[in-house]
Design a protein around this nucleic acid. Structure first.
Length: 378
RNA sequence: GGGGGUGUGGCAGAGUGGUCUAAUGCACCAGACUGUAAAUCUGGCGGGCUUGCCCUUCGGUGGUUCAAAUCCAUCCGCCCCCA
């Protein structure tokens, strides 16, 4: 049997909760899930060279079509032979559609039914992203998994606003699918739909059902981690994920912190992405099995132990907290790479631990142990 | 020896009678960051508590004034120029 790019294979369900072990097939390799995908907006995971990224065990990374479209431009990437040739990352890549920029560049864009008009954050020039345009850009970039152009609803949003926004994403999703499969030329790439609806359960339900009707290879839950309370996030997942067919990959966009990964896997999420490991790394915050620390803090000036006693990453193997503290204080650029690398390794390793616990069907016990240790210093 | 200048919080540096516990930057102490316009941003940075006030602070001392970082005297330190 030939597996379609982006298709999900369920391997084992937890007997204790909705967590599940599986695999997502892509043309460039099989992804073991649950998986954490480091974010490389501009085609590079900030501060981490591909060879080090491989060492972390990363299976797939993100890139952003809006950013790559603006610079270097799609033509350059096509000329390079696709994004994987261009950025020397030969494993799967998922591209975001530009939908998140609707949210994050909210004061530099206008939305209408046709699409989104952006003012470039680089030079102020005007650009138009329609669902069709987003599909063309992502196909040209050469992503293995392509995301539908959506309207990432801001939080808070009134019910009426969230409804309109969700319905717009739905209309766009239909156009994305049509455009994506146009000419049947892109069977090596997968298209995922994105469920919206803010914190309103009936809107989420509607969005999920309609997305399933359109029929995508995988489904993402978007519009979360945009400022809503944690309870809302969990309520949405609890409500929405069961609607998605069991044989489809479920991707929670933009999440998250280590504690979020455990909790959301428990709800049945298969894929995550988040800028946290790299951004926080660049800001001195380090994730460890004993909780997060800010390596800039004075207490680490003469702490010659590694960042995390139970970490096997290249940074923990070689460098002390005291030295990393010194690098951060001195603004030596090396710390950007080292802390990002460690944090990514931490996330990837955490997911690997989650998968192992699912294999042995001891997810909840392992989760409890993780939290006990992670919060032991507070 | 003669002339000129200068001394402000950890550092640099504003302020030249009241609105000054004293701008700003750095340093320092913390916090935040969730499909990346982020190597960024925010807060704190003399002491005390009843959180509104009180005490202490602009080289030292003394003075003028209702009021002094700011004016005067004097002492001390530093810098420059001429001999």
């Amino acid at each position: 049997m030939t597996l379609k790019c982006g298709s999900y294979q369920l391997i084992k369900k937890s007997s204790e909760c909705k967590a599940r072990l599986g695999q997502i097939y892509t043309t460039r390799g099989i992804i073991d899930t649950p998986v954490f995908m480091p974010v490389g907006t501009q085609g590079t995971v900030k501060g981490v060279a591909s060879e080090f990224l491989h060492e972390t065990g990363a299976q797939i990374i993100l890139a952003n079509s809006y950013h790559l479209y603006l610079r270097p431009g799609v033509e350059i990437i096509k000329k390079a032979g696709g994004i994987q040739k261009f950025n020397a990352w030969n494993k799967p890549i998922l591209t975001d559609s530009g939908g998140f920029q609707v949210f994050s560049l909210s004061n530099m864009r206008k939305i209408n039914e046709e699409g989104i008009e952006f003012r470039s954050h680089i030079d102020g020039s005007r650009h138009f992203f329609s669902p069709e345009k987003s599909m063309q850009v992502q196909k040209d970039i050469g992503a293995d998994i392509v995301m539908c152009l959506d309207d990432c609803t801001q939080y808070p949003a009134t019910y009426e606003y969230a409804k309109k926004s969700m319905e717009l994403s739905l209309q766009w999703a239909k156009r994305c699918k049509k455009e994506f499969y146009e000419g049947n030329a892109y069977q090596t790439q997968a298209l995922f739909g994105i469920i919206q609806g803010s914190v309103y359960n009936d809107l989420r339900t509607k969005s999920a059902q309609e997305m399933l009707n359109i029929d995508f290879t995988g489904y993402a839950v978007g519009g979360l981690s945009v400022g809503e309370p944690k309870e809302s996030l969990h309520a949405v997942l609890e409500n929405t994920l069961p609607i998605i067919a069991e044989n489809k990959g479920r991707y929670l966009m933009g999440v998250g912190m280590p504690e979020d990964l455990w909790q959301c896997v428990e709800h049945g999420v298969d894929m995550f992405d988040c800028v946290i490991p790299t951004r926080n790394g660049r800001n001195g915050q380090v994730f460890t099995s004993l909780g997060k620390i800010n390596i800039r803090n004075a207490e680490f000036k003469d702490d010659f132990s590694s960042l995390d006693p139970s970490c096997n990453c290249p940074v923990c193997a070689e460098y002390s907290k005291a030295y990393l503290n010194h690098l951060v204080r001195s603004k030596e650029t090396l710390y950007l790479s080292l802390l990002s690398l460690h944090n990514i390794y931490f996330m990837i390793n955490l997911m690997s631990g989650i998968r192992n616990s699912l294999k042995d069907d001891i997810f909840l016990k392992t989760k409890t142990e993780f939290f006990k240790k992670y919060y032991s210093k507070n």
